[in-house]
Computed example of a mutant assay.
Amino acid sequence: MAQLVVEPRLMVGEGWDAYRLLDSGHGRKWEQFGDYRFIRPEPQAMWTPRIADWPAHSEFTPGSDEDGGGRWSDAPELPRDGWELAWDDVRFTAQPTPFRHLQFFPDMAPVWRWMRERLAGVEEAETLNLFGYTGVGSLALSDCGKVVHVDASKKSVAQARENAKLSDMDDRPIRWLIDDASKFAAREVRRERRYDGIILDPPKFGRGPNGETWRLEADLPGLLADCRRLLDEQSRFLFLTVYAVRMSSLALAGLMRELFADLPGQVEHGELAVREEGQDGRLLPTALFARWSQDGEGVNQ
C-alpha cells in the first residue's frame, strides 16, 4: 500500500541562465527571462521588496476579475515573435501571453529533473503529459523514451511542435495531441494502456477543443482515478501540480493515497517555490503539488 508522507515537501527552483527571480514584494515579482525583465502580479509576495527600483521591459496589470484578464504594458523592445531560452538540452520560445505568463513555467524546472530521475534505468519508458501546454516538460521527458503530449489548445500544441524543432528534437517519439485531457485519459483506460509516468498540470478552469468544461474541484477526482488505472506496479510516478486555488496539498495527497492504496511506493505533497537572486534569497511559493512514486521494485524513493 502506498504510504502517505504527512510532512510537506518543498521543491525549490533556482535561477539559471534563462530565468531569474530578481526580487518580489508588495504583491508583485520582478523576473528576468533571458535578456528581458518583467514585472508580474504575485499575491503571495506579501513582504517588502529588497530593491527600490524595478526597471522592466513590460509589466502585466491584472483586470478587475480575479479569475483572469489584464494586459501587458507596451514593450517595443521585445522581439515580436519571442526569443529563445533553454533548460538543460531543451530550447523553447518565450513571449508574453494574455494569461500573464511567458509560454513556460520556470518553477517546474525541479519537477522536470525529478521526473527524469524517477525514469532512470527504465528501458523505453512511456510517459503521459496531460495539459502539456507548450511542451517543455514533454521535451524533457522525451530524453527517457516515448511521450504522449495532450493539450486542448491548438495554438499551444503548435508552439510545442515548434519548440521541438528549435531543440532539434522533432524526431523524438512524441505524439502531439489536441484533445480534452479527461476524455483522452478515459479512452486510454478503455484501451487498457499503461504508462511509466504521468504528469498533470491542470488549470483551475478550462475548456476542451469541443467546448468541454473543466473545473478543478469537480473534475480532478475522476481524472486522477483514470490516471491511476493507467499505472501499475512497475510504473514510476504521477506528479500533480495545482495553481491559484484555495486548497491544501494535504487534501490532494489524501485523494491520491486513496486512489493508489493498492500500489507500493509513497505519496508526498507540498509546495513548489522559486528562490530569489542574491544572498539569503527568499522563497516565493508558486504552486501546490502531490506526487506518487516508486522505483521499479516497489522500493520507496
Rank of each mutant, 00 (worst) to 15 (best):
M115N: 07
W83I: 13
D74P: 01
P62C: 08
D81P: 00
Q95F: 10
W83F: 14
A120K: 15
A109K: 15
H57G: 04
W72K: 10
F104S: 11
F92G: 08
E59N: 04
R80Q: 11
F104C: 01
D67R: 11
W54G: 01
T97N: 04
T97H: 07
G63S: 09
T97R: 10
R80S: 09
L119M: 09
A75L: 03
D67N: 14
E59Q: 15
M108G: 04
D65H: 07
F105I: 03
G63W: 09
Q95H: 12
T61Q: 10
T48I: 08
F104D: 00
G82W: 13
P96Q: 12
I51Y: 10
S73M: 06
V111A: 14
R91M: 03
P55A: 08
D107N: 11
H101F: 09
A86H: 08
A94G: 01
A52E: 15
E84M: 09
E123K: 12
A109Q: 12
W114A: 05
T61V: 15
L78K: 08
R71I: 02
E123F: 00
R116S: 07
H101R: 01
L78I: 09
F105R: 05
I51R: 14
V122C: 12
E84V: 15
V90P: 08
T61G: 02
T93I: 15
L85A: 13
T93G: 03
T48F: 06
P55K: 01
P110D: 05
D107E: 12
S73V: 07
P76S: 09
W54Q: 04
E77T: 15
S58L: 01
I51G: 00
P110A: 01
P98H: 11
D89Y: 05
R118F: 02
E77I: 06
M46S: 09
S73P: 03
P49W: 10
E123W: 01
F105K: 02
L119I: 07
L78E: 01
P55E: 10
D107R: 03
R116V: 07
E123N: 10
A94W: 10
S73W: 09
P96A: 13
W72M: 11
V122T: 15
R50C: 03
W72Y: 09
H101Q: 01
A56C: 15
G82A: 13
P55D: 07
A109M: 06
P76Q: 06
A120W: 04
F99M: 09
D74H: 11
R80A: 15
E59R: 14
R71Y: 13
F105E: 05
H101P: 00
A52P: 04
G69D: 01
P98F: 06
F92C: 08
E123H: 07
D53S: 12
L85I: 02
A56I: 02
A75C: 14
P96S: 14
S58M: 04
F104T: 01
P76L: 13
T61C: 05
